[in-house]
Every structure is written in structure tokens, then in C-alpha cells.
Amino acid sequence: MTPATMITPTQTSAAADSAALSISPSARPLSLEMVELELALDIGDIRSLGFSFAVRQAIESLDGEFLFDLPASGLSDTDQRIAVVRLGQPGEDQLLLVSLDQDGEQLKVGVPDERTAGLADFARAFIDVLEKL
């Protein structure tokens, strides 16, 4: 996932925006939505509520949509779960991925890349089906 920000349990929400970024020169800059989501996520909530519920709670606080989460096997060697969320208005929305590392100690928020393009395509198809219902 690139770009991504890792948030560890020892960081406070005030320090989350200064977390180590993994951005290549050709990568898109962090969007305001990504920063807001990073600040809304709390590793403590994930430990107490579970990954899916904590991500759902964070995204709903931003008027976004939790689409689904699934095991990260095959998509990432370093993560155990990936959630797909949508922020923004239809037509101007942005899909974001939230992943939890194998140890359950770090969260990453990023945009779909080459490795997760199929997941993003599936999410778009999922959105299309939901909008037709």
C-alpha cells in the first residue's frame, strides 16, 4: 500500500500526523481524507472492539462508508487484515485501504496500488450493486 502512514500504539493522535510515511516520488500526496481517517483510527479500539468494528466506527465518524474487510493473505505478506472504506461523495469518492499488521500493533491507511488493484475493482463492483438495491 503506497502511500501509507503507520500508527503505532505509542503514538498519540497528535503525533500520528508525523508518523513515518512511505511515499515514493511518483505517489499521490496524502489526501485530507486519509489524514482524517488516520487520526480517527485508534489501535486501542482495535484491541478492545476488534478490527472491523473499530474501522467501521472511525469511518462513520467521518461520514464515510465501511465496505468490507477480509484476511490480507495473498495481498500482503506483512498484514493480517485489510478493510476497504469509501470517503467522499459519489462520483468524487475515494477508496482507502486500512490494514492491520501481523502483530496487531500497527495500522496503515493507503490507496489501492498495483498489488491491490483487484481488490479496488471488486470494491467498485460492490458499490455498484449496493447503489442499485
Rank of each mutant, 00 (worst) to 15 (best):
M1C: 11
T2N: 13
T5Y: 03
I7A: 00
P9S: 02
P9N: 02
T10L: 01
T12W: 02
A14K: 15
A14F: 15
A15E: 05
A16W: 02
A16G: 02
D17G: 12
S18G: 14
A20N: 03
P25W: 02
S26P: 01
A27Q: 12
A27V: 10
S31R: 07
L32D: 09
L32S: 14
E33R: 12
V35G: 10
V35M: 10
E36A: 06
L37C: 01
L39R: 14
A40K: 04
L41P: 13
L41M: 07
L41W: 00
D42W: 07
I43N: 00
I43E: 04
L49D: 15
L49A: 15
G50M: 04
F51V: 09
F53K: 13
A54Y: 15
A54C: 15
V55L: 08
V55H: 04
R56T: 06
Q57P: 06
S61K: 15
F66L: 05
F66Q: 03
D69L: 04
L70F: 00
P71I: 05
P71C: 06
S73Y: 09
T78P: 03
T78Y: 11
V84K: 01
V85G: 05
V85C: 09
L87W: 08
G91V: 05
L97A: 01
S99D: 01
S99N: 02
L100F: 10
D101L: 01
Q102C: 11
Q102R: 15
D103G: 14
E105H: 06
E105V: 02
K108M: 05
V109W: 00
G110D: 03
V111F: 13
P112R: 05
P112E: 07
E114L: 12
T116D: 03
G118Q: 14
D121R: 14
D121L: 13
F122T: 07
A125E: 14
F126W: 15
I127D: 12
I127T: 09
V129R: 15
L130C: 08
E131L: 09
E131K: 14
